[in-house]
Protein backbone atom coordinates (compact mmCIF):
# COMPACT_ATOMS: atom_id res chain seq x y z
CA UNK A 1 0.00 0.00 0.00
CA UNK A 2 2.78 2.37 0.90
CA UNK A 3 4.58 1.60 -2.34
CA UNK A 4 1.50 2.43 -4.32
CA UNK A 5 1.09 5.61 -2.38
CA UNK A 6 4.61 6.73 -3.25
CA UNK A 7 4.08 5.99 -6.91
CA UNK A 8 0.93 8.06 -6.96
CA UNK A 9 2.35 11.01 -5.08
CA UNK A 10 4.91 11.82 -7.72
CA UNK A 11 2.86 14.70 -9.09
CA UNK A 12 1.59 16.85 -6.24
CA UNK A 13 2.91 17.02 -2.70
CA UNK A 14 0.58 16.55 0.26
CA UNK A 15 -1.16 13.86 2.33
CA UNK A 16 -3.75 11.36 1.18
CA UNK A 17 -7.04 12.90 2.23
CA UNK A 18 -9.18 10.32 0.49
CA UNK A 19 -7.89 6.81 0.16
CA UNK A 20 -9.55 3.76 -1.38
CA UNK A 21 -7.86 0.40 -1.05
CA UNK A 22 -8.87 -2.70 -2.96
CA UNK A 23 -12.52 -1.60 -3.09
CA UNK A 24 -15.00 -3.95 -4.71
CA UNK A 25 -18.72 -3.59 -5.28
CA UNK A 26 -21.33 -5.68 -7.07
CA UNK A 27 -24.88 -4.90 -8.12
CA UNK A 28 -26.08 -8.49 -8.24
CA UNK A 29 -24.06 -10.05 -11.04
CA UNK A 30 -22.61 -6.76 -12.20
CA UNK A 31 -19.14 -6.00 -10.86
CA UNK A 32 -19.32 -2.18 -10.78
CA UNK A 33 -16.10 -1.46 -8.87
CA UNK A 34 -13.21 -3.82 -9.50
CA UNK A 35 -10.40 -3.69 -7.00
CA UNK A 36 -10.20 0.11 -6.97
CA UNK A 37 -7.09 1.73 -5.50
CA UNK A 38 -7.31 5.47 -5.53
CA UNK A 39 -5.79 8.29 -3.49
CA UNK A 40 -6.50 11.98 -3.47
CA UNK A 41 -4.20 14.37 -1.67
CA UNK A 42 -5.10 17.57 0.11
CA UNK A 43 -5.66 20.42 -2.32
CA UNK A 44 -5.83 18.16 -5.33
CA UNK A 45 -8.53 18.42 -7.99
CA UNK A 46 -9.24 15.05 -9.56
CA UNK A 47 -11.61 14.69 -12.48
CA UNK A 48 -13.11 11.26 -13.03
CA UNK A 49 -14.30 10.60 -16.56
CA UNK A 50 -15.43 7.58 -18.49
CA UNK A 51 -18.34 6.14 -20.44
CA UNK A 52 -21.67 5.75 -18.65
CA UNK A 53 -21.88 2.58 -16.61
CA UNK A 54 -18.15 2.64 -15.97
CA UNK A 55 -18.66 2.98 -12.20
CA UNK A 56 -17.52 6.58 -11.81
CA UNK A 57 -20.67 7.77 -10.04
CA UNK A 58 -20.64 4.72 -7.79
CA UNK A 59 -17.02 5.47 -6.91
CA UNK A 60 -17.93 9.03 -6.01
CA UNK A 61 -20.94 7.98 -3.90
CA UNK A 62 -18.98 5.26 -2.14
CA UNK A 63 -16.60 7.87 -0.74
CA UNK A 64 -19.25 9.20 1.64
CA UNK A 65 -20.94 5.82 1.88
CA UNK A 66 -24.12 6.68 0.04
CA UNK A 67 -23.21 3.38 -1.64
CA UNK A 68 -21.93 0.56 0.52
CA UNK A 69 -18.98 -1.47 -0.70
CA UNK A 70 -18.53 -5.25 -0.59
CA UNK A 71 -14.88 -5.27 0.48
CA UNK A 72 -11.78 -3.15 0.69
CA UNK A 73 -11.62 0.02 2.72
CA UNK A 74 -12.14 3.73 2.29
CA UNK A 75 -10.52 6.31 4.56
CA UNK A 76 -11.08 10.04 4.82
CA UNK A 77 -8.19 11.99 6.34
CA UNK A 78 -6.78 8.77 7.78
CA UNK A 79 -10.08 7.69 9.37
CA UNK A 80 -11.75 4.58 8.05
CA UNK A 81 -15.39 5.05 7.00
CA UNK A 82 -17.46 3.68 9.90
CA UNK A 83 -20.64 1.65 9.59
CA UNK A 84 -24.03 3.37 9.57
CA UNK A 85 -24.65 5.54 12.66
CA UNK A 86 -23.61 8.73 14.45
CA UNK A 87 -19.92 8.30 13.67
CA UNK A 88 -20.62 7.99 9.95
CA UNK A 89 -22.77 11.12 10.12
CA UNK A 90 -19.84 13.01 11.69
CA UNK A 91 -17.50 11.89 8.96
CA UNK A 92 -19.98 12.79 6.24
CA UNK A 93 -20.10 16.32 7.57
CA UNK A 94 -16.45 16.60 6.45
CA UNK A 95 -17.26 15.47 2.92
CA UNK A 96 -19.32 17.87 0.82
CA UNK A 97 -21.44 16.38 -1.94
CA UNK A 98 -23.03 17.97 -4.97
CA UNK A 99 -25.54 15.89 -6.91
CA UNK A 100 -26.60 15.80 -10.52
CA UNK A 101 -30.19 16.60 -9.56
CA UNK A 102 -29.24 19.32 -7.00
CA UNK A 103 -31.43 17.79 -4.26
CA UNK A 104 -32.12 21.06 -2.50
CA UNK A 105 -34.59 20.58 0.37
CA UNK A 106 -37.84 21.39 -1.42
CA UNK A 107 -39.70 22.66 1.67
CA UNK A 108 -36.94 25.00 2.88
CA UNK A 109 -35.89 28.43 1.59
CA UNK A 110 -32.54 28.89 -0.12
CA UNK A 111 -31.10 30.39 3.06
CA UNK A 112 -32.47 27.56 5.22
CA UNK A 113 -31.03 25.01 2.81
CA UNK A 114 -27.58 26.41 3.54
CA UNK A 115 -27.99 26.99 7.29
CA UNK A 116 -29.70 23.71 8.20
CA UNK A 117 -26.47 21.68 8.34
CA UNK A 118 -24.45 24.20 10.37
CA UNK A 119 -27.34 24.70 12.84
CA UNK A 120 -28.53 21.11 13.26
CA UNK A 121 -25.30 19.18 12.72
CA UNK A 122 -22.66 21.58 13.99
CA UNK A 123 -24.81 23.30 16.61
CA UNK A 124 -24.03 26.78 15.29
CA UNK A 125 -26.25 29.67 16.38
CA UNK A 126 -28.83 30.80 13.84
CA UNK A 127 -27.39 34.32 13.61
CA UNK A 128 -23.92 33.03 12.90
CA UNK A 129 -25.15 30.42 10.42
CA UNK A 130 -27.23 33.06 8.59
CA UNK A 131 -24.21 35.33 8.31
CA UNK A 132 -21.98 32.56 6.94
CA UNK A 133 -24.71 31.35 4.59
CA UNK A 134 -25.32 34.81 3.14
CA UNK A 135 -21.60 35.22 2.50
CA UNK A 136 -21.52 31.85 0.71
CA UNK A 137 -24.64 32.64 -1.31
CA UNK A 138 -23.11 35.97 -2.37
CA UNK A 139 -19.95 34.16 -3.34
CA UNK A 140 -21.81 31.82 -5.68
CA UNK A 141 -23.87 34.72 -7.00
CA UNK A 142 -27.34 33.93 -5.64
CA UNK A 143 -27.43 36.13 -2.52
CA UNK A 144 -30.58 37.96 -3.62
CA UNK A 145 -32.46 34.63 -3.92
CA UNK A 146 -32.09 33.78 -0.21
CA UNK A 147 -35.78 34.01 0.79
CA UNK A 148 -37.07 32.01 -2.19
CA UNK A 149 -37.91 28.30 -2.40
CA UNK A 150 -35.72 26.02 -4.55
CA UNK A 151 -38.42 25.49 -7.19
CA UNK A 152 -38.38 29.23 -7.95
CA UNK A 153 -34.74 29.11 -9.09
CA UNK A 154 -33.22 27.97 -12.37
CA UNK A 155 -31.23 24.76 -12.46
CA UNK A 156 -27.93 26.59 -12.57
CA UNK A 157 -28.89 28.71 -9.57
CA UNK A 158 -30.08 25.66 -7.65
CA UNK A 159 -26.81 23.88 -8.30
CA UNK A 160 -24.82 26.88 -7.06
CA UNK A 161 -26.96 26.88 -3.90
CA UNK A 162 -26.20 23.17 -3.53
CA UNK A 163 -22.49 23.99 -3.69
CA UNK A 164 -22.97 26.70 -1.05
CA UNK A 165 -24.89 24.23 1.13
CA UNK A 166 -22.01 21.76 0.97
CA UNK A 167 -19.41 24.48 1.60
CA UNK A 168 -21.31 25.71 4.66
CA UNK A 169 -20.20 22.57 6.48
CA UNK A 170 -16.57 23.56 5.84
CA UNK A 171 -15.77 20.18 4.31
CA UNK A 172 -12.29 18.79 3.87
CA UNK A 173 -13.15 17.45 0.44
CA UNK A 174 -15.92 18.12 -2.06
CA UNK A 175 -17.47 15.42 -4.24
CA UNK A 176 -19.25 16.44 -7.43
CA UNK A 177 -21.38 13.74 -9.05
CA UNK A 178 -22.02 14.96 -12.61
CA UNK A 179 -22.92 18.45 -11.36
CA UNK A 180 -23.73 19.89 -14.79
CA UNK A 181 -25.36 16.91 -16.50
CA UNK A 182 -28.90 18.07 -15.75
CA UNK A 183 -28.31 21.66 -16.86
CA UNK A 184 -28.97 23.63 -20.04
CA UNK A 185 -25.78 24.61 -21.86
CA UNK A 186 -25.94 28.26 -20.83
CA UNK A 187 -26.22 27.32 -17.17
CA UNK A 188 -23.32 24.91 -17.25
CA UNK A 189 -20.69 27.63 -17.36
CA UNK A 190 -22.10 29.51 -14.34
CA UNK A 191 -21.72 26.34 -12.27
CA UNK A 192 -18.31 25.49 -13.72
CA UNK A 193 -17.07 29.03 -12.97
CA UNK A 194 -17.92 28.52 -9.30
CA UNK A 195 -16.13 25.17 -9.32
CA UNK A 196 -13.04 26.58 -11.03
CA UNK A 197 -12.93 29.37 -8.45
CA UNK A 198 -13.19 26.78 -5.69
CA UNK A 199 -10.35 24.77 -7.22
CA UNK A 200 -8.18 27.87 -7.37
CA UNK A 201 -8.80 28.50 -3.68
CA UNK A 202 -7.24 25.14 -2.92
CA UNK A 203 -10.33 23.01 -2.16
CA UNK A 204 -9.76 19.27 -2.52
CA UNK A 205 -12.21 18.12 -5.16
CA UNK A 206 -13.27 14.89 -6.82
CA UNK A 207 -15.38 15.67 -9.85
CA UNK A 208 -17.25 13.16 -11.96
CA UNK A 209 -18.06 15.00 -15.16
CA UNK A 210 -18.27 14.96 -18.93
CA UNK A 211 -16.97 18.53 -19.14
CA UNK A 212 -13.55 18.08 -20.73
CA UNK A 213 -13.00 21.83 -20.69
CA UNK A 214 -13.21 21.82 -16.91
CA UNK A 215 -10.83 18.87 -16.74
CA UNK A 216 -8.26 20.71 -18.84
CA UNK A 217 -8.65 23.99 -17.00
CA UNK A 218 -8.92 22.98 -13.36
CA UNK A 219 -7.84 19.38 -12.85
CA UNK A 220 -4.53 18.27 -11.39
CA UNK A 221 -5.27 14.69 -12.40
CA UNK A 222 -7.64 12.94 -14.73
CA UNK A 223 -8.80 9.47 -13.79
CA UNK A 224 -10.33 7.49 -16.62
CA UNK A 225 -12.68 4.66 -15.67
CA UNK A 226 -14.12 1.91 -17.82
CA UNK A 227 -15.98 -1.28 -16.83
CA UNK A 228 -15.49 -0.69 -13.11
CA UNK A 229 -11.75 -0.21 -13.30
CA UNK A 230 -9.41 2.75 -13.23
CA UNK A 231 -7.78 2.45 -16.63
CA UNK A 232 -5.71 5.63 -16.62
CA UNK A 233 -4.56 8.10 -14.02
CA UNK A 234 -2.62 10.99 -15.51
CA UNK A 235 -2.28 14.75 -15.74
CA UNK A 236 -4.87 16.37 -18.05
CA UNK A 237 -2.06 17.22 -20.45
CA UNK A 238 -0.87 13.60 -20.65
CA UNK A 239 -4.35 12.17 -20.80
CA UNK A 240 -5.77 14.37 -23.54
CA UNK A 241 -2.70 14.50 -25.78
CA UNK A 242 -1.28 11.05 -25.24
CA UNK A 243 -3.72 8.52 -23.75
CA UNK A 244 -2.07 5.19 -23.09
CA UNK A 245 -4.94 2.68 -23.27
CA UNK A 246 -6.98 1.83 -26.34
CA UNK A 247 -10.13 2.23 -24.19
CA UNK A 248 -9.27 5.88 -23.44
CA UNK A 249 -8.22 6.56 -27.04
CA UNK A 250 -11.55 5.18 -28.20
CA UNK A 251 -13.46 7.31 -25.66
CA UNK A 252 -11.62 10.49 -26.59
CA UNK A 253 -12.01 9.94 -30.32
CA UNK A 254 -15.78 9.65 -29.85
CA UNK A 255 -15.84 12.94 -27.96
CA UNK A 256 -13.95 14.73 -30.69
CA UNK A 257 -16.13 13.55 -33.56
CA UNK A 258 -19.15 15.40 -32.16
Amino acid sequence: MFARFVVMTTQVPGDALVSLNAVNKHYGQLHVLKDINFQVRKGEVVVVIGPSGSGKSTLCRAINRLETIDDGDIAIDGKRLPEEGKELAHLRADVGMVFQSFNLFAHKTILENVTLGPIKVKGMSKAEADKDAMALLERVGVGHQAPKLPAQLSGGQQQRVAIARALAMKPKVMLFDEPTSALDPEMISEVLDVMIQLAKEGMTMIVVTHEMGFARKAADRVVFMADGQIVEDATPEQFFTNPQSSRAKDFLSKLLTH
Binding site: L66, G85, H90, G96, M97, S101, F102, N103, A166
Partner: peptide
Protein backbone atom coordinates in the same frame (compact mmCIF):
# COMPACT_ATOMS: atom_id res chain seq x y z
CA UNK B 1 -40.30 12.09 -1.19
CA UNK B 2 -37.49 11.74 -3.75
CA UNK B 3 -34.56 9.63 -2.52
CA UNK B 4 -32.20 12.51 -3.31
CA UNK B 5 -33.67 14.53 -0.42
CA UNK B 6 -32.53 11.93 2.10
CA UNK B 7 -29.17 11.51 0.37
CA UNK B 8 -28.52 15.25 0.45
CA UNK B 9 -29.47 15.37 4.13
CA UNK B 10 -27.22 12.44 4.96
CA UNK B 11 -24.37 13.96 2.97
CA UNK B 12 -24.32 17.06 5.19
CA UNK B 13 -23.94 14.81 8.22
CA UNK B 14 -27.49 14.42 9.54
CA UNK B 15 -28.33 11.33 11.56
CA UNK B 16 -31.22 9.03 10.62
CA UNK B 17 -33.50 10.75 13.14
CA UNK B 18 -32.66 14.21 11.81
Amino acid sequence: VPLGQAEAARSIGMTFGQ
